[in-house]
Amino acid sequence: MITAQNINLCYDKKTVVWDFDFEVRPGEIVSLIGPNGSGKSTVLKAISRLLKCTCGTVHLDGYDIYKLPTREVAKKLSILSQVHATPPDFTVRELVNYGRVPHQQWYETLNQEDREIVAWAIAQTRLEQFADRTVNSLSGGERQRAWIALALAQRPQVLLLDEPTTFLDICHQIELLDLVKRLNASLGLTVVMVLHDINHAAAYSHRLVVIKDGRKVAEGAPVDVLTPKLLSEVYNVQAEIAYHPKTGKLYFHALGLACAKKELPCNQATA
């Protein structure tokens, strides 16, 4: 689906991601985890062509993503950023309508099929009753779902989510992640997301990619990747990994900092 080879990324002159290889297979949920500033979101931007690599390549379905017309990419892939700017008077439906833009010519307006797809996207995200309310009048979780509906209306094969749960309370976090999982299961939608919560990442992903200081540290199924050793190396946290007695899912519990040098910032402790 997506293959990134040997990519280097920098902001201004400062390189933040080095020699990163990455692959996403169709139909899987992959989570990128790592400490703050490790380059997770940067990688996500690179594989969604929002940020151009200084070197290396990103392929989408075998085509170089930077050479594909950006509108073609928009039909296959959708990325949701952390922060959204919604014009204050846009309703949910008006916002979701924009998801159809990549499928229209510049002179075209919504046709019946577009309208149906928009209605479908709204139904998928369970926003029917809010469809004609303004986005800004909704709660944070509903707003996030509205933007996911916009992404769904693009009918993408890959959905990239940049910290989709950040501003949500725990209920809305679970609700959102369940939605992602459901979409993945029912539509076969490939999902790549950046998550902060390791337990969420473990519970909802087929595969994890761990990044630290712009380099890939580990990759694989949650069970294989999440070890106390890795958590100590990457996050400088002493942790206990266990399987929940009821769900059988892996979870971790932080016991404290691995390194006692408290005056050092967390992500420099092992550098």
Partner: peptide, 20 residues
């Protein structure tokens, strides 16, 4: 009209929707 509307959604969202 269309690009102006897309720009209102923010740069990333506009790029995501296929706008240069």
């Amino acid at each position: 009209i269309k690009p102006a509307n897309l720009l209102q959604l923010g740069d990333d969202a506009a790029r995501n929707l296929g706008l240069n």
